[in-house]
């Protein structure tokens, strides 16, 4: 069973509880600018879209990190703050924009699924963000749209899980 965040924008009301919960879990402060999840407000369409890392297989961030500060923990790409030097190269390599530089810490930040208990999903009052077994949800569809930008053909067939 592979667990992931499954996001249904149709249920999002832009209350931004997820941003506050994420920021609080990771930094101890309620500061949406330090949240790993962002709610986009497409007001002309009346549509809100919570957006964060889909833990993609390509792992652009992990492979580009010059000092091995991002590892694959059972599919989750985790930044190790004690190793990150703050060079920011992952923030331009990730074509989804879901790794960001945090000036307050001098490190990069990204979604780590809170180690298996994501604060955003727990805080979401409308089940727009749920943490669930991806085999029974529309996660693949979600990941596909994120990976729409990946023009590099997925090479060599399916890869076995990362060695880490």
């Amino acid at each position: 069973m592979e667990m992931a965040l499954v996001i249904d924008p149709g249920k999002c009301t832009a209350c931004r509880q997820c941003e506050l919960a994420c920021s609080y879990r990771h930094t101890g402060e309620f500061n949406p600018s330090r949240s790993r999840i962002v709610v986009f407000d497409f007001h002309t369409k009346g549509r809100f879209v919570p957006y964060t890392c889909t833990q993609c297989d390509q792992a652009w961030c992990q492979q580009v990190c010059p000092v091995g500060a991002i590892t694959n923990e059972n599919g989750v790409k985790v930044v190790h703050e004690d190793i990150c030097v703050g060079c920011k190269v992952c923030t331009i390599a990730c074509p989804f924009g879901t790794v960001n530089y945090d000036p307050a810490s001098g490190k990069v930040i990204k979604c780590d699924l809170c180690g298996g208990d994501p604060a955003c999903a727990a805080a979401c009052p409308t089940e727009a963000i749920v943490y669930t077994d991806i085999s029974v949800q529309g996660f693949e569809k979600m990941r596909k749209w994120a990976e729409r930008v990946d023009t590099a053909p997925q090479a060599g067939g399916d890869l076995p899980p990362a060695a880490h």
Partner: peptide
Amino acid sequence: HVNMVGCIRGLIQSRI
């Protein structure tokens, strides 16, 4: 300007 700057790669590379 650094917030979600990787999206620029995404937009260019996808030729969307």
